[in-house]
Design a protein around this nucleic acid. Structure first.
Lengths: 271, 271
DNA sequence: GCTTGACCCTCCCCTAGGGGGAGGCCCCAA
DNA sequence: TTGGGGCCTCCCCCTAGGGGAGGGTCAAGC
């Protein structure tokens, strides 16, 4: 028979832990001296302690361990518990994966934005590649887009493939009854029962300009782009797009003077 | 100003949680009525509550959240915290992955063994495929192999590709100074600084017999196999192998009468 | 037999993020 | 003025133990 200290060294469990296991009933000492309350353990307890250690390493709770020990004498008997644990761990990992994806997305966005901190932006004549998006087209005020992005983020678990954007279907600026579609680029399509519309956005030639500052001053970027288009004898094709290189973050609204928005006006040669 | 109940509905945080956040200092009410102790919150608190909710969903601790809120006004300011969290989550996921692998391995082993429960085993003349293994060759008593398997399991995180086995280099049975090598099949090689020997085990023709029962009766399987080899005029090639289809489990030692061990004696045509 | 030092005991408080509930005060409307 | 709902503080509960205080026990040396 081993005293608790000897048993602790034999099993590599702390004395505190052993007393706790006794209290919780998962590893009761073989004998408790009635007068002094000293705990004594035998060989059988060493084996049981080994099983408990193995189960703890698999992150079973003490309650589960107590039940497993009372019902099982062989790994095969514990199969249902092991399988349940496997499912629980898979679920937990899926959740952690979604958190990691969200973190990754914020970090990348902020790093990208940081790199553009001191850039002076000019109008660019680019060819935009087609891109798969998930969007929700709505009619109303632009403030609503915040909630729409949240909805999209939840539906796709931030398994996103790029910066969020918006399609603006109106030919002229409308404050009240605007017709627009916030979207996220996504990696692959996914069944969603809601009003989310997943499709490939066509590419094409576009005049682009990055606007730095709050959204209520974004009209100037449109003005410059449309002026440039006229000068180059190009015809704008609706919808135009905005890509939010840096906007209100996932956590903080941040400073609107630092917002970066690329405005893309698709064009074709004028007749 | 909103009462705590109204604020609770506005933020979707429970009243209990809000009081807890107050106590922990992460979300202090805008005003506390001195007489009654009633808490009142304003619009700014709603925004702050939103940030706290987002950070809680990313599984930051309240302490971390307090610090982030006190130092950051923009997602960019929180980058270091986000990056640290990402690392922590990656580490946690790696750990969970190893647990899941261990669970998977036990479950598969037990299911495989269960399927062989009622089988009567006969000698088979098989061609064994080559297999990549990690082994530790030692000299001593067979009881030591238990610790060796533990060591291998730890080193390879149960990222295993099959059943454990053992190579027996002795031509005859030795109790004391046996020369043997417990091994695990592995998926790919891996640098290990210790005495673990990773290599491809050659395949070949072998006479095989599954032995059911404790290891101290395994000699009969060898006897039957060697007799069969003699009868077929085959020559045994050392080392022979044992594959532990079901032995003492990861958790319980279990019932030795149910152990299943495939003995493989490699042979070539006799001259 | 006594002392000493190591060992062991129980009891209480602590961790993170709240949940549940008791007992009592506050506020507003009928 | 009275009710009912809202709000307050205080206490205990959960994991799996850790830290420490205060005090009893064991075995060996003298």
């Amino acid at each position: 028979m081993l005293s608790i200290g000897e048993f602790s060294r034999a099993t590599a469990l702390t004395v505190k832990t052993l007393r706790h296991y006794h209290e919780r009933g998962v590893l009761v000492p073989t004998h408790v001296e009635p007068g002094s309350g000293y705990r004594y353990y035998d060989e059988v307890a060493i084996e049981r302690a080994g099983v408990i250690k193995a189960l703890r390493e698999l992150e079973f709770s003490l309650d589960d361990i107590g039940q497993i020990l009372s019902e099982c004498a062989d790994d095969a008997d514990a199969l249902q518990y092991l399988a349940k644990k496997r499912e629980a761990i898979a679920a937990r990992m899926a959740h952690l994966r979604s958190i990691a994806a969200a973190l990754e997305s914020v970090i990348r966005t902020e790093n990208d934005a940081k790199a553009m901190n001191d850039t002076e932006f000019e109008i660019e004549d680019k060819t935009i590649a087609p891109v798969l998006i998930a969007g929700i087209r709505i009619r109303g005020r632009f403030e609503q887009c915040k909630d729409v992005f949240k909805q999209l983020g939840r539906a796709f678990g931030f398994g996103l493939a790029g910066k969020p954007g918006m399609l603006i279907y109106d030919e002229e600026y409308k404050q009240q009854d605007a017709d627009f579609e916030p979207f996220f680029p996504v990696k692959k399509s996914k069944k969603t029962a809601s009003e989310i519309h997943v499709r490939e956005l066509p590419g094409g030639r576009a005049l682009c300009l990055v606007h730095r500052g709050p959204y209520d001053r974004i009209a100037s970027a449109y003005g410059r782009l449309l002026g440039e288009a006229r000068q180059r004898r190009l015809v704008a094709i609706a919808p135009s797009r905005e890509v939010y290189l840096k906007g209100p973050g996932m956590l903080f609204a941040g400073n609107p003077e630092k917002y970066l928005t690329e405005v893309q006006i698709f064009v074709r040669d004028g007749e």
